[in-house]
Simulated assay, not measured.
Amino acid sequence: MIDRADYYAAKLAYETDASDVHAARQAQSDIVVVDVRSEEAWAQGRVAGAIHMHYSEIAARAPREISPDAEVVVYCWSPGCNAGAKGALEFSRLGYNVREMIGGFEYWVREGYPVEDADGTHRRPVDPLTGIARIRTRA
Rank of each mutant, 00 (worst) to 15 (best):
130 T>Q: 12
85 A>Y: 10
87 G>A: 08
82 N>V: 10
20 D>Y: 07
133 A>W: 13
62 A>Q: 02
131 G>E: 11
92 S>R: 11
135 I>R: 15
114 P>E: 03
136 R>E: 15
59 A>I: 15
109 V>S: 11
90 E>I: 08
83 A>M: 15
66 I>R: 08
31 I>C: 06
28 Q>H: 14
11 K>F: 14
54 H>D: 10
48 A>V: 02
119 D>T: 13
1 M>R: 10
61 R>F: 04
127 D>W: 14
16 T>W: 02
59 A>M: 14
43 A>M: 05
64 R>Y: 05
76 C>I: 11
122 H>I: 02
5 A>K: 10
4 R>W: 13
139 A>D: 14
8 Y>M: 09
96 Y>E: 00
51 I>H: 00
102 I>H: 01
68 P>Y: 05
75 Y>G: 01
31 I>P: 00
44 Q>S: 11
1 M>I: 10
133 A>F: 09
36 V>W: 09
126 V>Y: 12
68 P>F: 07
10 A>M: 12
41 A>S: 14
110 R>M: 13
42 W>S: 00
59 A>R: 15
114 P>N: 07
82 N>S: 12
37 R>W: 08
38 S>A: 06
46 R>C: 04
132 I>N: 13
137 T>E: 14
82 N>R: 13
76 C>V: 12
87 G>F: 12
56 S>Y: 10
97 N>H: 12
3 D>W: 06
14 Y>M: 13
92 S>T: 15
139 A>K: 14
61 R>H: 07
50 A>E: 02
83 A>G: 08
84 G>P: 09
118 A>G: 06
29 S>A: 12
6 D>Q: 13
107 Y>N: 08
23 A>M: 11
19 S>T: 15
44 Q>K: 12
89 L>G: 03
131 G>M: 09
77 W>E: 09
92 S>I: 03
90 E>Y: 08
21 V>H: 01
130 T>P: 00
48 A>W: 08
82 N>P: 07
18 A>M: 08
73 V>S: 03
109 V>Y: 06
69 D>Q: 14
16 T>G: 03
70 A>N: 06
95 G>T: 08
139 A>L: 15
72 V>H: 03
109 V>W: 08
100 E>V: 05
10 A>V: 04
101 M>V: 02
95 G>L: 05
3 D>M: 05
138 R>C: 03
27 A>M: 10
104 G>E: 12
94 L>E: 03
131 G>I: 13
27 A>H: 07
11 K>T: 02
2 I>W: 07
87 G>C: 09
129 L>M: 13
83 A>S: 14
77 W>D: 11
61 R>Y: 05
59 A>K: 15
80 G>V: 10
84 G>S: 15
26 Q>F: 04
120 G>I: 09
8 Y>S: 01
57 E>Y: 12
30 D>I: 00
66 I>V: 15
92 S>H: 14
122 H>Y: 09
53 M>G: 01
7 Y>V: 07
49 G>V: 05
